[in-house]
Amino acid sequence: MNCPFCAIAAGQLPAHLLHEDEHFLVILDIYPIRPAHVLLVSREHAPHLSDLPLPARERLVALAERVQRALRACGHGRDGINIMINDGPASNQHVPHFHLHLVPRRLGDLPWLLWRMLTRFLPLGRKTLQRRLEGEADALRQALQREA
């Protein structure tokens, strides 16, 4: 299997890991469409939401709420947070492994968001982005610990 999320869960690929439990990893998206774009990734390989074991599905919303509180505590998403599941290739799911996106939003950010969605996979500014992700990861890890 050539699944990047399985490789992250196995410790074979690096990630900005914010939290982990028996069902999920919470990581920063390496191609974020907004600052502090977080992914809740199933620890076990499950392509779709319906493939997740029941205990993981039951835990999902509570974990998403906890991550939202941590995002807001760090100043992200105070105006709103998109919660998205792309379930299948027609829905723009790039990696066939269940993951939920939490995308912090600001009023008036739609033009920038649309531009970022079009350009997010380009290699421009990767070093600057990496530094930003490291700072976001540190702050969010601390906030998640406080939200426990």
Results as ranks from 00 to 15, higher is better:
13 L>Y: 12
14 P>A: 13
14 P>W: 11
14 P>K: 12
14 P>M: 08
20 E>A: 12
21 D>P: 04
21 D>K: 05
22 E>A: 11
23 H>M: 02
24 F>R: 04
24 F>L: 01
25 L>A: 00
25 L>D: 00
25 L>P: 02
31 Y>E: 07
31 Y>T: 01
32 P>D: 09
32 P>G: 11
32 P>L: 11
33 I>P: 03
36 A>D: 03
36 A>R: 01
37 H>Y: 08
38 V>I: 11
38 V>F: 02
42 S>Q: 02
43 R>F: 00
43 R>H: 09
44 E>R: 04
44 E>L: 06
45 H>G: 03
45 H>R: 08
46 A>W: 04
47 P>T: 11
48 H>P: 01
48 H>L: 11
50 S>R: 09
52 L>I: 14
52 L>T: 09
54 L>H: 10
55 P>W: 13
56 A>D: 10
56 A>P: 07
56 A>M: 14
57 R>S: 07
58 E>Y: 04
58 E>K: 09
58 E>V: 09
60 L>Y: 06
60 L>C: 07
60 L>N: 01
61 V>C: 12
61 V>K: 10
62 A>W: 13
62 A>N: 15
63 L>T: 09
64 A>S: 14
65 E>D: 15
65 E>L: 14
65 E>Y: 14
66 R>L: 07
66 R>P: 01
66 R>C: 06
67 V>T: 03
68 Q>M: 12
69 R>N: 11
70 A>H: 00
71 L>K: 02
73 A>H: 07
75 G>I: 09
75 G>E: 12
76 H>N: 07
76 H>C: 04
76 H>S: 07
77 G>Y: 00
77 G>M: 00
78 R>F: 02
79 D>I: 05
80 G>H: 06
82 N>C: 06
83 I>R: 06
84 M>N: 00
85 I>E: 07
87 D>R: 03
87 D>A: 09
89 P>N: 14
89 P>W: 14
90 A>N: 15
92 N>V: 12
94 H>P: 05
94 H>C: 12
94 H>F: 10
95 V>N: 04
95 V>G: 04
95 V>D: 01
95 V>A: 08
96 P>L: 14
96 P>I: 07
98 F>M: 08
99 H>N: 09
102 L>V: 04
102 L>K: 04
103 V>E: 03
103 V>L: 03
104 P>H: 06
104 P>I: 05
105 R>T: 03
105 R>W: 00
105 R>E: 02
106 R>N: 08
107 L>D: 13
108 G>V: 09
108 G>Y: 10
109 D>N: 05
109 D>H: 04
110 L>I: 10
110 L>V: 09
110 L>G: 06
111 P>T: 13
112 W>F: 12
113 L>K: 05
115 W>H: 10
115 W>N: 10
117 M>Y: 03
119 T>G: 08
121 F>S: 15
123 P>E: 09
123 P>Y: 07
124 L>G: 11
125 G>E: 11
125 G>P: 01
128 T>Q: 14
128 T>L: 14
129 L>P: 05
129 L>Y: 07
130 Q>H: 15
132 R>N: 12
132 R>F: 08
133 L>R: 04
133 L>N: 04
134 E>I: 13
134 E>A: 15
134 E>S: 15
